[in-house]
Nucleic acid binder design. Structure first.
Length: 670
DNA sequence: CGATGTAGCACC
DNA sequence: AAACGGTGCTACATCG
C-alpha cells in the first residue's frame, strides 16, 4: 500500500538548484519533502537547456506553499539557502513565499553545536548519527550526470552546460556537474541514456529529504541529553538575520573600484619591469608568477645562477626556502643600500601587494550585480555568510569574502565600498573585546581597572600601553602616553605585535611572543604581573585535556551553567595543543557576543522600518546601512550600540561599543 | 586533464 | 610532536 502524505506534523525539505549563485540566476528545479511516516512529496521543473532558466509552474508553487504552510515544523540542512532560492523562484512568478522562521529547524546548526570541529555535510552526518549511507545515491547521480553532459556535448552543443567561467556562475570551481543534475531526464527525453535517467535525480533528492528528518530527531535527542537545547534554540534565531544580510548585500562604487584597479595594475607592471631588468643584469631570464612563487623566481633569488640570497625561513611541510612577506621584509632591512638585490626585493614586495589587491577587485567585479541605481555606478555584492563555517563560533564569508577587505594604508580597498546615494553607513565595533573577556573572567585587577577607567591615568584605557610600561618602564616614565607616537614603528609597534601573538595563544616556551616583542623574557614578565590570566589559561588547557572541548562563557539569559562547546581536536599523540583552549574560549565568547548583538539589532531594526539594514559582520565589527537622515538615525544607531553592548550584560563583562559614520566611503580618513 | 596540495596574503 | 588561533581565494606545482 503506498503511503498517503500526512497533514501537519514535522516535515523535511530539500531542494536541488542550477547553481549556488542565486543572484546570478541559479534557481531550484527539484524540491522534495518527507513527512514523519517517510512519505516523500516532490516537485520537479524543467530547466531550459539553452538559458539554464527554471521553468516552474504557478500551480506547483501554490502546492508547495500549501505543504509549507501545513507543516508544524520544517527541518532543513542549511535552511537559509533553500529559503533564499525558493523566495527568488516565487518572485520570478510574481509570487511571495510565505516562510515562518519560528517553525524551522536546521540540521547544520545542530551538527556544529554537537561537534564543532567535525564535518557537517548531510552525507557525513547521516552516517555518523544514523549509520545511514546515502553516498551511493550521490555516486549514481554523479555518474549519470557526467554521462548526460557527455551525451549533450556531442548531440546538443548549444546546451549551456555548467562550467567554470560562465558569467552566471561566478562561484563555480572545477566540480560543476552538481549544477547539471536536471540534465539526465532531459537527455533521456531527447533519446539518450535509458529510463533510469528519468528517476536518478528524484531518488537522490528524496533520499536526502528522507534522511534529514530522522537525522534531526536524533540530533534533537542528543542536544537535550547534553543540555544544549536552549543554546540550540538561541542559535536558530540567527537564520533570519543571515538571510536578511545576504539578501540586502553591500554596495560598492564602480568608478572608485576602477580607479584603484588601474592604479594597482600600472604600479604592478612597473615593478614587474624592474624585477625583470635586474634579473637580466644577472644574465637570468626571469618569469615572474602572477602571485606567490614559481620555480623561476625562487631559483633566481636563492641559487647561484641568480642573487644567491641566504634562506631565512623554511617551509614547515616541504622544507623549501620561504619567500614570504616576513622574509622579504628581513631582506629589505639587511641588504646593502642601493644594491641590486635590495632593489629587487623592494620591487617584488610592492608588486605582490598590488597583485593581491588587484585580484580582490577583479573578484568583486565577477560577483557584483547592478543596483536599482540606473547610472551604473553603484553595484551590489551578496557574499554568503556562514555561521557554522569555522571550528569556533566565528562566521565565515565567501563568494566573495567580505571579511578580508584591506584597510591598509595605500591598499585601502574599503574605499570602493560605501553607502549608495541617499544612504549612510555606520560601523560599530567592540572595544578590545577579546582582551576584556579573559581580564574580567580571571579578575585581573590592573586590567579591569584599565577597562573601567578609560579616561584616567596612567594608561587611559590603553591595553597596549599597559604592556608597554611593563616591558619598557623607563621609556614610559619618560614619554608617558606619547610613547605611542615616539616609538610608533619600533617599541610600541612591537608591543602590539607581541600582544596579538599572546592573544592568539603563543606559548611561553616557543619564544614566539618574545621575538614579536623584541624583548627577551617579555612573556614571562607579563605573566608574572598578570598571573591570574596565566591561571585561566592553565584551567582551560586542563579542561580541554579532560573533556576534549572548552565552553564559551555562559550566557545568563540562555543557560547560566553552560556555554557553547568548542571541540579542540588532538594531535596524533592524543594531546590538546596548548595554544588552542584559551583562544577558542575567548574568541568563541566574542563571537557569541556578536551573534547576540546581531540578533538584537536585526529584530529592533525590523520594528523601526523596512529600510534599516545590517550589511556586514567582520568578527567584532557590524556595519549598518540606513537612509541618510542624521536626525532620525541618531537615536536608532545609539540603540543599536546599546543592544550590542547588552551582550556584555548576558556574559557579565562590560563591553562598550564605538561607532563611526561613513557618508560616502567605508574607508576611514577619506 | 582534472583533482589535490602548497604557498602566500588579506582580514579579525 | 608541537608550540600563533580562525578563515577564503588565487596561482603554481604535482599527483594519479
Amino acid at each position: 500500500m503506498p503511503k498517503r502524505p500526512r497533514q501537519g506534523g514535522m516535515i523535511s525539505l530539500d531542494s536541488e538548484t542550477t547553481g549556488l549563485d542565486l543572484r546570478h540566476g541559479a534557481r531550484p528545479y527539484y524540491v522534495s519533502t518527507c513527512d514523519e511516516d517517510g512519505c516523500n512529496v516532490s516537485w520537479e521543473w524543467r530547466v531550459d537547456p539553452l538559458t539554464r532558466r527554471v521553468v516552474a509552474d504557478r500551480g506547483d508553487l501554490k502546492d508547495l506553499q500549501r505543504k509549507i504552510d501545513g507543516a508544524d515544523k520544517i527541518v532543513l540542512q542549511n535552511p537559509k539557502f533553500d529559503f533564499m532560492a525558493l523566495s527568488l523562484l516565487f518572485n520570478d512568478y510574481s509570487m511571495e513565499l510565505r516562510w515562518d522562521w519560528a517553525k524551522i529547524y536546521d540540521t547544520l546548526l545542530a551538527g556544529h553545536l554537537l561537534a564543532s570541529n567535525q564535518p557537517h555535510d548531510l552525507t557525513t552526518m547521516a552516517m555518523v548519527y544514523l549509520q545511514a549511507n546515502v553516498q551511493p545515491y550521490e555516486d549514481r547521480l554523479r555518474k549519470v550526470t557526467l554521462a548526460a553532459r557527455s551525451w549533450a556535448r556531442t548531440n546538443r552543443p548549444d546546451w549551456r552546460q555548467a562550467k567554470e567561467g560562465l558569467p552566471e556562475m561566478p562561484s563555480a570551481k572545477s566540480t560543476v556537474w552538481k549544477y547539471d543534475c536536471w540534465m539526465p531526464r532531459l537527455v533521456h527525453e531527447e533519446g539518450g541514456g535509458d529510463e533510469t535517467w528519468e528517476t536518478v535525480l528524484s531518488e537522490y533528492g528524496d533520499s536526502d529529504a528522507s534522511v534529514t528528518l530522522p537525522l534531526f530527531k536524533r540530533q534533537q535527542q542528543i542536544l537535550k541529553q547534553k543540555h544544549l537545547w536552549r543554546i540550540y534554540e538561541e542559535r536558530l534565531k540567527v537564520l533570519p538575520v543571515v538571510a536578511a544580510i545576504e539578501n540586502y548585500g553591500v554596495t560598492l562604487h564602480a568608478g572608485r573600484l576602477e580607479e584603484k584597479r588601474t592604479e594597482y595594475a600600472e604600479a604592478s607592471q612597473d615593478a614587474h619591469r624592474t624585477c625583470l631588468n635586474i634579473a637580466k643584469r644577472y644574465g637570468y631570464e626571469l618569469t615572474l608568477p602572477k602571485s606567490g612563487n614559481n620555480k623561476s623566481l625562487t631559483e633566481f633569488v636563492f641559487s647561484e645562477e641568480g642573487m644567491h640570497l641566504p634562506p631565512l625561513k623554511k617551509s614547515k611541510k616541504t622544507g623549501v626556502p620561504s619567500l614570504d612577506k616576513t622574509v622579504l621584509e628581513q631582506y629589505s632591512v639587511t641588504l646593502p643600500r642601493n644594491s641590486k638585490p635590495l632593489m629587487f626585493v623592494t620591487a617584488l614586495m610592492g608588486k605582490r601587494k598590488r597583485d593581491t589587491a588587484y585580484g580582490y577587485l577583479e573578484s568583486y567585479k565577477k560577483f557584483w550585480v547592478h543596483t536599482e541605481h540606473r547610472d551604473r555606478v553603484w553595484y551590489r555584492l551578496h557574499p554568503s555568510l556562514n555561521p557554522t563555517g569555522t571550528d569556533t563560533l566565528r562566521w565565515s564569508s565567501q563568494n566573495p569574502n567580505e571579511q578580508n577587505i584591506s584597510k591598509k594604508e595605500g591598499f585601502n580597498l574599503r574605499y570602493c565600498f560605501g553607502p549608495a546615494p541617499g544612504r549612510v553607513w555606520y560601523s560599530c565595533d567592540a572595544k578590545n573585546l577579546e582582551l576584556r573577556f579573559p581580564a574580567y573572567e580571571a579578575n585581573e585587577p590592573e586590567m579591569v581597572y584599565l577597562f573601567e577607567h578609560p579616561n584616567d591615568p596612567p594608561y587611559y584605557g590603553s591595553y597596549h600601553m599597559l604592556i608597554f610600561d611593563t616591558l619598557h618602564p623607563k621609556l614610559f616614565a619618560k614619554h608617558g602616553m606619547e610613547s605611542k607616537e615616539a616609538y610608533a614603528s619600533t617599541w610600541y609597534q612591537w608591543t602590539k605585535n607581541g600582544d596579538f601573538a599572546v592573544q592568539y595563544g603563543a606559548v611561553l616556551e616557543s619564544g614566539t611572543a618574545d621575538r614579536a616583542y623584541h624583548v627577551p623574557g617579555a612573556q614571562a614578565r607579563i605573566q608574572s604581573r598578570f598571573n591570574r590570566i596565566k591561571k585561566l589559561n592553565a584551567q582551560q588547557i586542563a579542561y580541554a585535556e579532560k573533556y576534549g572541548y572548552v565552553e564559551t562563557m555562559p550566557d545568563k539569559t540562555v543557560d547560566p551553567d553552560h556555554g557553547y562547546p568548542l571541540w579542540c581536536g588532538r594531535t596524533s599523540y592524543g594531546r590538546i595543543m596548548p595554544t588552542v583552549p584559551l583562544n577558542y574560549h575567548v574568541s568563541g565568547t566574542a563571537c557569541w557576543w556578536m551573534m547576540k548583538g546581531m540578533i538584537r539589532c536585526h529584530n529592533y531594526l525590523q520594528d523601526v522600518g523596512d529600510d534599516y539594514h545590517i550589511v556586514m559582520q567582520i568578527h567584532d565589527e557590524q556595519v549598518f546601512d540606513f537612509p541618510d537622515d542624521e536626525a532620525t538615525n541618531k537615536p536608532i544607531i545609539e540603540q543599536c550600540m546599546k543592544l550590542m553592548a547588552q551582550g556584555g550584560d548576558d556574559l557579565g563583562v562590560p563591553t562598550p561599543v564605538s561607532c563611526t559614520k561613513h557618508s560616502t566611503t567605508w574607508s576611514t580618513g577619506s
